[in-house]
Nucleic acid binder design. Sequence first.
RNA 1: GCGCCAGUAGCUCAGUGGAUUAGAGCGUCGCCCUGCGGAGGCGAAGGUCGCAGGUUCGAGUCCUGCCUGGCGCGCCA
Length: 575
Amino acid sequence: MIRDQIRQIVTQAVASAQSSGNLPSIAFPPVEIERPNQPDHGDYSSNFALLATSAIKKASGRKANPRQLAQSIVDNIPAGQLVGSVELAGPGFINFRLNECWLQQSVLSIIEQGPLFGAIDRGKGQNWQVEYVSANPTGPLHYGGGRNAVLGDALANVLEAAGFNVQREFYVNDSGTQFQLFIESLYVCYIQLCEEQDALPARNLEVPENGYQGAYLHDYAKLVRERVGDRLAHLAPDDAMAALRPIGREIVVSDIEDELASMGVTFDRWFSEQTLYEEGLVDKLLEQLSEKGEVVRRDGAVWFLASNYPGNEKDEVVVRSNGAPTYFASDIAYHYDKFARRNFDRVINVWAVDHQGHIPRMGAVMRALDLDPDRLKILLYNLVKLIRDGQEVKMSKRSGDILTVREVVEEVGPDAVRFMLLTTSPESSIDFDMSLAVQRKSENRVYYVQYGHARICSLLHRAAQNGHRNPEEVPPDAADIVTLLTDPAELTLIRRMLEMEEQIELAVARLSPHNLTYYAEDLTKTFSVFYENCQVLHSDVPRELARARLLLILAARTALSRVLNLMGMSAPEEM
RNA sequence: GCGCCAGUAGCUCAGUGGAUUAGAGCGUCGCCCUGCGGAGGCGAAGGUCGCAGGUUCGAGUCCUGCCUGGCGCGCCA
């Protein structure tokens, strides 16, 4: 990474200034390289001299002059290929400007990297898991789950770009009370359907008190009947429901899977909670924890003594007094499986804020299992408020009247959904204006980037028609040709593209990819300015210069489609 | 009551302790089509960064207190 290289240059300059006695030999803080806001201040800058001043003051009580310190560092920076100029500025900043020749050649390196452009090696082959969505398998996804899906998916993309081996997992809660209620509700709908279709005597069954009422249950019931006919209607209710469980599970999970796929979200693994019970892992771990005194029986229930751990005020029930385990019991086993068996170096769970209370107890579980709590990260995101025609879209979950991810995707399109749900930092809530998202006009920022990409493709296509042979290929003399790229708009575009690595690094460091949306817009904006200022296929433009600009455009397409793909969006060739 | 999060332009939101001017999109008001897709470009207006203190060479960013809003504090998930 460029930033790392510059950091390295400064660090070495500091070391040589120290060994020649121009800088005191004390322990300095690590060198920070930042990107100045103002272009006048160069491409990169370091405030090291300012930080060093206070370090010296602390160490020796002497007050050093930051500009002087900066000068002695600058004096120790050798000439190189990457950096064109180094200057001392303001109270003691060291500003770096990238070498123009180097910028020009990097156009070719961008093209060469292609769809992997911007990849960095932060992961060093570590195995990470991102677990996201993990909605209850009781029906279609509530639109709020869309944010979870988009966030987790883009984060996984970015982690892969940063050199991590990433596994995407959906945890299927196919064992708890909610799933049981779903099966009971589905059973009732199924029976009603059979009574109707197969002329069976009416039993007047009703969906249980806290059961699921949504219309989708009737669709599911139809699917059940298509598979097994009225066979289950002739069994005793308990037997029928036992038989219904795997069928219902498959129907609802594949419905959710389709729904997510409509947004381009797919998983490597759908992990069944039920299997943790079937193989006895839950019991085994509760037993182990009990032997260690982490789990005790009290008031007829079984408790995990979370309050022994920092941040936890209360203990947690793992087995109710009626003998039924809570979801927390299987969560212990699930995380044991993730860390102790599958050995992920790190796991990121994407949770909505209403689950924030679980965070401290998960930390307690990790410690109780002798696992490093830092291996588990929770990415919390705030809720989504849907606005349509200036009004909040309200809904009642009870009547099953929920707006689903599928409906929102159908209404505004998958790319708009992804972009909109990604622009806001996770901890902020989102006001998602659907009426705005549908508009394919300038008021809608979603299509701006895609439009830019489509223009690029159109331009390359037209170049071929205009007699440029193979505009998508790099000619043998490309290294000479790109030296013609000297227009400020051209160089600015190159600089912007070269931020890709830093944007990926930033998204990984914060565990949030929302910066990508802003970067994508910025990139497109810079391209548009270039496009406005620099003609390519006009007859006035010399042949060689046109070729150079086509290479730049090819690089721009590489960069734009890369960032779109990282966000999980399509990069259309025409619109 | 306690805990977590948010409060930045008319609206929706960025902002990684830095450089007399705090950014973007939309909206508003002006320009730019005998030029590669105008779903574009240029410019203007618009801010006591919730309030009050503090830390430091330097604070929208860190600390404390307060105000407002959201979420959480079950033998629910």
